[in-house]
């Protein structure tokens, strides 16, 4: 897994609620048999006009937010489909951290699998971060420090956040989840042996 320690960069506010993973990446881009640059197609219906040109109203098209590494998002970001391509798409745009009041649960899990850090903060705090992003020069330099579990803002504020300890350790050390679990192969084997006695119908 890709490591995540300290991320520095611009934060872009996309504060709409219930942004679903179909909106993050359309199914046609995902299922193509050819190799597709998912980053190019992230948020395509919001980001491009019908003629394919950039929609200047979309926040990530605005010069100050181009190259943003942090996304400030609305409630229930990444709801809907389990498509992990939604994470690949934002990653392809360069985004490594999404901060929202809540997330779609599957998207939230998929982030950790790809070295993207999802952070849950109250709406009021996200509104403040968005205000700082809008007001500071060039979107401002934010720093997300996973070791310290804090965000340092262009306005010199420090905002702390919480992360599940197991997931935090995996990101900090870049652990491979499968290799980590396979260290417990003996436990899995003995569970199945016991379970075959208790619930033989499971194993047919």
């Amino acid at each position: 897994m890709t490591m995540f320690t300290v991320l520095e960069g611009v934060a872009a506010p996309l504060l709409r609620e219930n942004v679903d993973t179909d909106t993050v990446i359309r199914i046609e881009r995902l299922v193509s048999l050819e190799k597709v640059d998912l980053g190019h197609w992230a948020f395509e219906t919001l980001r491009y006009r019908k003629d394919g040109s950039d929609n200047p109203d979309f926040v990530l098209n605005q010069p100050r937010y181009r190259g943003a590494r942090i996304l400030l998002a609305g409630r229930n970001f990444g709801c809907g489909s389990s498509r992990e391509g939604a994470v690949h798409a934002i990653l392809g745009m360069g985004i490594r951290c999404v901060i929202a009041p809540s997330f779609g649960d599957i998207f939230f899990s998929n982030c950790f699998q790809n070295g993207v850090l999802p952070i849950v903060l109250p709406q009021a705090e996200i509104d403040k971060l968005a205000e700082e992003a809008r007001e500071s020069a060039a979107g401002g330099a934010f720093a997300v420090d996973l070791e310290a579990q804090e965000i340092r803002t262009p306005g010199q504020r420090t905002v702390s956040f919480a992360t599940d300890p197991n997931r935090r350790r995996a990101l900090l050390q870049g652990l491979d989840p499968i290799a980590t679990t396979l260290q417990r192969d003996g436990d899995i084997e003995s569970f199945q042996q016991r379970d075959r006695q208790a619930r033989p119908w499971i194993y047919g």
Partner: peptide, 12 residues
């Protein structure tokens, strides 16, 4: 589950 978790289930 997502596609990475899917591979995790296949392996473990």
């Amino acid at each position: 589950i997502g596609s990475s978790e899917l591979v995790h289930v296949l392996a473990t």
